[in-house]
């Protein structure tokens, strides 16, 4: 990340979805510090869905769980809202401990990126900039709708040139290298949570 570069979040409409008041405050304060002024906080998936239906959103940041509902399911739903102005809006998932039962959902929901907690301003901003600059097309393949999981540009996850069928090998590698990369796991390379993301980011 070029620390001398400039970013302008003045006019960006950001939707944050998290049911935890503290998690929401952390995200909200981070984006406020970045200079964002138009931040909508939704404490439930129902509120987030309503907002999506009637507003132009530039960036969605959603926690993996929102109350009893799943943030992954929300993004999965969003990508299927043909005709909605936000169907392609970049979506960043924020994930805490990922239960084994939902690893597949995390990979296949159609989010642009997954950031493992604990979040830090630097990591969040790196991912926002990366998501803004990436030129991955969306694709529809089988049940998957979302950004092409084969990356064409250097990215923080460094998982280039791989499609879904190549992911088994990628995941095995990722598990072995989790200590080095799990601080912000690329959705396309999401592996079984083999080690503590915090240890990895240390």
């Amino acid at each position: 990340m070029d620390l001398n570069g400039f970013i302008n979040l003045d006019k960006i409409c950001i939707l944050l979805a998290d049911s935890s008041p503290q998690g929401m405050d952390i995200l909200s304060q981070i984006f406020t510090g970045f200079g964002a002024r138009n931040i909508t906080r939704c404490a439930s998936i129902a509120l987030a869905s309503d907002f999506i239906r009637s507003n132009d959103v530039d960036l969605i940041v959603v926690n993996d769980t929102v109350g009893t509902e799943s943030g992954y399911d929300f993004v999965h739903w969003l990508r299927r809202q043909e005709g909605n102005q936000n169907v392609f809006t970049p979506a960043i998932m924020i994930s805490g401990h990922t239960k084994r039962s939902i690893v597949g959902k995390a990979r296949d929901c159609g989010a642009n990126f997954l950031i493992a907690k604990p979040v830090s301003p630097q990591v969040v901003l790196e991912r926002v900039i990366w998501v803004a600059r990436e030129k991955r097309p969306f694709l529809e393949a089988g049940d998957y709708i979302g950004p092409d999981r084969r990356h064409h540009e250097a990215d923080p996850g460094e998982n280039k040139g791989r499609r879904r069928n190549d992911q088994l090998l990628a995941e095995a590698e990722a598990a072995a290298a989790a200590a080095a990369e799990a601080a912000a796991v690329d959705v396309s390379g999401l592996a079984e949570p083999a080690s503590d993301p915090q240890q990895a980011s240390a």
């Binding site: 620390l3 400039f6 970013i7 003045d10 960006i12 901003l125 926002v128 969306f138």
Partner: peptide, 28 residues
């Protein structure tokens, strides 16, 4: 099926104004 997607974030984040990346991180 490939779909070309518009990305308003890219356009707006690069608009004139805003703040230095280092300042944004420090402020956050």
């Amino acid at each position: 099926r490939y779909i070309k997607n518009p990305n308003s974030l890219a356009r707006k984040i690069a608009a004139p104004g805003g703040k230095k990346v280092s300042a944004a991180v420090a402020d956050a």
